[in-house]
């Protein structure tokens, strides 16, 4: 059986006054049905642009998908016209954005926004849509649902708004939900509530989930498979355990060593990654992580390392992945 979603060599670029930004530069990954896949990386690594490309929401004309395929149930989304894409967006693939404050329409009631999606995609009348909206709010843990339908986004707290966003995403029983930093704007106790809710609902309803985040802890708690992105490329992929215990790319290793952990002794000095992320308009023919890498060799400046299987389903894009592995074993 083929995967639910197959992204193949996706390239998305933005033209700016200072040059072409290769925001997504040859990204390939699959999402199986009902699976939770994480995309991790720091600001500007292209993780959100990948998601917007899947939804065909990249802001034109500055942004453009210039290459690759996005196969959803074997249909290339990039071949669809606007109308066909609109039928998939929000119905088969739904998205939950980071900012629950700005992604809801402030002048429409919660009920209208929920029912709009339903009536757009499903053949339902207003009464049925309203009944379904009430049911959805109950599903995401909002009590007193009927009263809430008449309220506006500003009447709700950040956590409540994100619950409404999730209700909207679930409304047409999608096969895939893309959650772009769904809890970054929320407080930690509310973050825990929302993540538990999403985990529970996606498992119960069998929905596949792409969770995009910069938070390594969130990934460890919720994802089966992890893609690590840097400068527009996936540089490591594997199951969560492998990535965390046996990283094969210096960037992943660096990320893991940069964060203080609650379960480890206090007072140990953090090991940051030196330097800062590259300018995406000025990438050369070598590995983009090279200037910050402690494992770099001459070859890294000449050839971009491809993402290859280095250990039974664990992929790394690093010429020196064996050295990284040795270093990890020595440290532990």
């Amino acid at each position: 059986m083929t995967a639910l979603l197959q992204i193949q060599d996706l390239k998305t670029q933005f033209s700016t006054s200072s040059g072409t930004v290769k925001a997504v530069d040859g990204v390939t990954y699959d999402v199986e049905e009902g699976e939770t896949v994480a995309v991790v990386g720091e600001s500007g690594c292209g993780k959100s642009v990948t998601a917007l490309s899947i939804m065909r929401l990249v802001a034109e004309p500055a942004g453009k998908i210039v290459g690759g395929k996005i196969l959803f149930q074997d249909i290339n989304l990039l071949d669809l016209d606007i109308e066909e894409m609109r039928n998939i967006r929000g119905k088969d693939i739904a998205m939950v954005f980071q900012e629950p404050m700005t992604s809801l329409n402030p002048v429409l009631t919660i009920g209208m926004q929920l029912m709009e999606t339903l009536q757009q995609h499903l053949d339902v009348d207003e009464t049925a849509a309203q009944a379904r909206a009430v049911e959805l709010l109950g599903l995401v843990g909002i009590s007193d649902a009927e009263r809430r339908l008449a309220q506006y986004p500003h009447n709700l707290s950040g956590g409540m708004r994100q619950r409404v966003m999730i209700a909207m995403a679930l409304s047409c029983e999608p096969k895939l939900i893309i959650a772009d930093e769904p809890t970054t704007a929320l407080d930690v106790t509310i973050q825990a509530q929302i993540l538990e809710l999403m985990k529970d609902l996606t498992r119960r309803l069998g929905v596949a989930l792409i969770i995009i985040t910069h938070n390594l802890g969130v990934v460890a708690r919720y994802a089966n498979r992890v893609n690590v992105m840097y400068a527009g490329k996936i540089i490591e992929r594997g199951n969560a355990r492998e990535i965390y215990h046996n990283p094969k790319h210096p960037y992943t290793l660096g990320l893991l060593r940069s964060v203080p952990r609650l379960d480890q002794p206090r007072g140990e000095r953090l090991v940051p990654i030196v330097g800062h992320p590259p300018d995406l308009t000025r990438l050369d023919g070598g590995c983009a992580f090279r200037p910050r890498c402690t494992f770099a060799v001459d070859r890294c400046a000449r050839e971009i390392p491809p993402l290859v299987d280095v250990d039974g389903g664990h992929l790394s894009a690093c010429w020196e992945h064996e050295n990284v592995g040795l270093n990890v074993r020595k440290a532990s």
Partner: peptide, 12 residues
């Protein structure tokens, strides 16, 4: 403290 996720799938 319980709400803070730890970056280690086994610990989690």
């Amino acid at each position: 403290l319980s709400a803070v996720p730890v970056p280690d799938p086994d610990v989690e």
